[in-house]
Simulated scan of single mutants.
Amino acid sequence: MTITNQNKIHRILRIYEKLITGDGIIRKELADYFEVSKKTIKRDLKEIDRYFQELDNNYHKDYISYDYQNKAYFLNDTKLDLTQKEILAIVKVILESRAFCKSETKKIINKLITKVPLNLQNDIKEIIANELYHYSELEHQSKLLDLIWNISLAVKENRVIKIKYNSLSKDNLVERKIEPMGLMFSEYYFYLIAHHYEQKDDFKIPYRLDRIDEFQVSTEHYKVNYTDRFQEGEFRKRIQFMYPGKLMKIKFKFWGDSIEAVLDRLSTAKILDEKDRKYIIEAEVFGKGIKMWLLSQGDNLEVLEPEKVREEMNQTIKNMIGHYKN
């Protein structure tokens, strides 16, 4: 291989590296650096552009274009796996969820932003600057990324795990041997959904990840039939605030401002009847979390069935009234 060809290969690889990382290509700067003409750099850009065309089998599209504002060539945003708009949306969701401690949040966001060309990164940084500066991490301040990954692998491989868990109802850590079924996120927290080891019924127990003090994956596997596998989406439709419990049907009357908000919150909800903007709704739900949501609606609803839940609501409201008596 001649020295000229070696120089060309090095030059094209350098241009390709700059484009992929979102850096702009200024022809004169590179021409001076490599001691070639600007026309040579332009030919290099055309060769790289042709390479992207061959990858997509699309010879009618320019993947490298000139940005007149920045006076440089950039790899088009449409070629990226995620667009500037998509990355901004993901970043906003991460910030709003408050799922991670501040250090992990910043790390994730910074990596996402680097997927956008340099000439477009400042837009996202400026849009989120105030929200990121005032980001309020949760009280536990735990780093969760490694734990999320390790538990997800245990779920995938059906491995029995042992944990030491900080239960708020007890003073000391409790030890549990469990069969991990799934990992979910709800209202600020990540949860491990599990069965107790060799549990006979199908009662599912959520464990908050930030309360897991120790975690050990065993070599033992547990068996689960495909038809009996845990389905996160179906579980999410039926549980509120990750409070476990038995599956039941509940019926209530609702006359608040937004029936859409009710249907969005309770994914299994069905409207059985409607008259004068008063709705009879039925939903299939797990546990006592539904009671917390029902109470959050104030005097905009009335529980009709089951009678036990109706009585519990009645007693809870009486207790609440008692708190406000002199």
Rank of each mutant, 00 (worst) to 15 (best):
D210N: 06
E157D: 10
T21K: 10
T21I: 11
D44M: 07
D146Y: 13
I212M: 06
I127K: 12
R208H: 10
N76V: 15
M292S: 10
M313R: 01
E86T: 08
S186F: 12
I280T: 14
K270W: 11
L55P: 03
D77I: 14
L138I: 15
Y222M: 03
H140R: 08
Q315S: 12
K61C: 09
E131R: 11
I205M: 09
E175M: 06
I9R: 00
I290Y: 03
E104N: 00
H195F: 11
F215Q: 03
N314W: 05
F52W: 05
N110A: 06
I127H: 14
I90K: 07
E139T: 15
V303C: 07
E175G: 07
N7H: 04
L118D: 08
E47A: 04
R277S: 14
I212E: 08
V309S: 02
L183A: 04
L145F: 14
F252Q: 00
K204D: 09
E234V: 12
Y324L: 07
H323K: 12
L112D: 02
H134T: 15
K71I: 06
K111L: 10
F185S: 07
Q240I: 14
K71D: 13
I151N: 02
G322C: 12
Y165S: 02
F252G: 01
Y73N: 03
K200M: 14
I20Y: 04
E131F: 07
Q69W: 02
L75F: 10
Y222F: 15
N225W: 00
I108H: 01
L30C: 09
L192F: 08
K102W: 00
L145I: 15
K249A: 06
E302F: 06
L301S: 05
L82F: 13
E305M: 07
Y188N: 12
R265A: 10
I280Y: 02
E232L: 10
S267P: 00
I290T: 14
L263D: 08
K291W: 04
D276C: 04
L247Y: 01
A269L: 09
K46Y: 06
E220D: 07
Y197H: 14
P244F: 06
E17L: 12
T40V: 15
